[in-house]
Amino acid sequence: MTAKRLPVPPFTAETAQQKVRAAEDAWNSRDPERVALGYTEDSEWRNRDVFLSGRAEIVEFLREKWQYELDYRLRKELWAFTDNRIAVRFEYEWRNDEDRWFRSYGNENWEFDENGLMRRRYASINDIPIAADERRISL
């Protein structure tokens, strides 16, 4: 039996916002296993030009991501929602191992199953270099 991840579809403005906050909190933990629990066992992802399938691939991807994207900090904003889908815009800041800072902007489209787990996540992301004093998202 699959555990439910509240809130579950169909979403309202309030429950869609709750889902966005929960995702933001999980990603800001930088804990790949915690993040992956929000997705179905066979979840499909597109992240930039990377295509993933399933929790195991998600965990491995996030481990590698956060070894490269240091001091990662994310903000998500609800853009739109329907019964079982949510669209968000986001930005996050991070630095590389040469201490160069970046801000990444993007959009995600999410689709959830009846248990509130995300079965599809499609992310388009662009990065821009920033100076350390241009950071807007505190750690």
Rank of each mutant, 00 (worst) to 15 (best):
R95D: 08
I86V: 10
E98H: 06
A87W: 15
K65A: 15
E98L: 01
E77M: 12
L62G: 09
E91T: 04
G54L: 14
N84E: 07
R103W: 03
R63F: 08
G116K: 10
W110S: 04
L52I: 12
Y72E: 07
D97C: 11
A56G: 01
I58P: 02
R85M: 15
E98P: 03
W110A: 11
R103F: 00
E111I: 12
E64Y: 05
R103E: 15
D99K: 00
N96E: 11
D49R: 03
Y68F: 11
Y68M: 13
A87Q: 05
F61H: 11
L70A: 12
R75M: 13
K76W: 11
K76V: 06
R89K: 04
Y105E: 06
R55A: 05
L74G: 04
L70S: 07
G106R: 03
D99T: 00
G54S: 07
E57Q: 14
N115P: 10
G116I: 10
W66Q: 10
F102L: 12
R103A: 02
F61V: 08
E91I: 05
N107F: 01
D97N: 13
Q67W: 13
E69C: 13
R48N: 08
D113A: 03
G54T: 06
R103K: 09
R100I: 07
T82S: 13
E93N: 06
V59K: 00
S53F: 07
L78F: 14
N115K: 02
W66S: 11
W94D: 06
F61Y: 15
Y68C: 10
D83S: 14
Y92R: 11
A87R: 01
R85G: 09
E64F: 12
D113G: 08
N84A: 06
D99S: 12
A87Y: 09
F112P: 00
L62E: 00
N109L: 12
F51R: 07
F51I: 06
W110H: 05
E60L: 13
K65D: 11
V88D: 06
W94R: 04
A87F: 07
Y105K: 02
E111W: 04
R89I: 01
F112D: 05
R95T: 13
E57C: 01
S53Y: 01
S104D: 00
D83V: 02
E60N: 09
F51N: 12
